[in-house]
């Protein structure tokens, strides 16, 4: 299980931003070759990102590269460059149906075979940015075992349903719920859209609270200043952490005593509770809330 609370978009044509991408405490980095890069800079940006993946230390952060449409020659060249490095996840641009994922996966498989890379090791992330994509969310989420997550892209989606973004985000509720159910059903992560108004911290936090409550794993972000605000919302409260620790201790105790069934306060603990506790402790640990002893318990469990 990996945390993906914050996925920081970094323009693939900006050397200093790429160099500095890993100094912040975001969970994941998305080097962008698509929207951030103008058509006449696609080749140089691809070269830059390729070199960056080969030479920079991204400090164990998950790194993805958003490629151009894999159906185009530019997108195919992006795929070739990135897959070869074995160092990044492929973040697809807009996906509308399972074939979009499958076709890209097929190209990746070809590149893997050509370069002696174990087939299936290159992972993918998808984004849904249209009405048809939202309606096909389930088939997209199940389209490939390579998929780690699906994300909502709200700007294009709003245009496709003939509206624009509002402060309370009600126009996104349906899409968010659809994508979230699809991701959960497929057992992959679900990431929310970017929030572009960097001056509106209040609006940003409110949106993060909404998607956190809905069940999202994290948010795409466009500036390092957004990281702390997201992490603050995703940091579990003291009571929740204590409850998770109790679950973990119960598991360790049961194992020590050779018991097949784990129970806490007379109630049996089932798998969803364990997973929930595990995630809570990961979030707490990332926020620096766990003592060394607590971390050791969590590891044992």
């Amino acid at each position: 299980m990996k945390l993906r609370r914050t996925m920081l978009f970094v323009p693939g044509n900006n050397p200093s931003l790429i160099r500095d991408a890993a100094i912040y405490n975001e969970d994941a980095i998305i080097l962008d070759l698509e929207d951030a890069v103008s058509i006449n800079e696609k080749d140089s940006a691809r070269f830059l990102v390729y070199q960056a993946l080969q030479s920079l230390d991204f400090r164990d952060k998950e790194v993805a590269v958003r490629i151009n449409d894999p159906k185009t020659p530019i997108g195919k060249m992006d795929l070739k460059a990135v897959v070869k490095t074995r160092k990044a996840v492929i973040r697809l641009p807009k996906s509308e149906c399972k074939e979009d994922i499958a076709e890209c996966a097929a190209i990746i498989e070809e590149i893997e075979r050509e370069n002696g890379i174990t087939v299936g090791t290159t992972r993918m992330m998808a984004a849904i940015e249209s009405a048809i994509g939202v309606l096909n969310a389930k088939e997209i989420a199940f389209a490939s075992p390579r998929l780690l997550s699906i994300a909502l892209g709200a700007e294009d989606y709003c245009a496709s349903i003939k509206t624009s973004r509002s402060a309370n985000g009600q126009e996104l509720l349906f899409a968010r719920c659809m994508i979230l159910q699809a991701a959960r059903a497929a057992g992959i992560d679900c990431i929310d859209t970017v929030f572009s108004d960097l001056k509106n911290d209040e609006g940003f936090i409110s949106e993060v609270e909404t998607i956190h409550q809905l069940g999202f794993d994290g948010k795409s972000i466009i500036h390092p200043k957004q990281i702390q605000m997201v992490h603050a919302v995703f940091t579990p409260g003291e009571a929740k952490v204590q409850k998770a620790m109790a679950v973990v201790r119960a598991i360790v105790d049961a194992r020590d005593k050779g018991l097949g069934v784990v129970s806490l306060n007379g109630k049996m603990i089932d798998r969803p509770v364990v997973l929930q506790a595990e995630r809570t402790l990961m979030l707490a640990s990332a926020a620096g809330l766990l003592s060394r002893e607590d971390k050791e318990y969590a590891r044992l469990a």
Binding site: D20, I23, Y24, H223, P224, K225
Partner: peptide, 8 residues
């Protein structure tokens, strides 16, 4: 400053 690196 708004520069995230300087703030860091």
């Amino acid at each position: 400053t708004n520069n995230p690196k300087e703030l860091l």
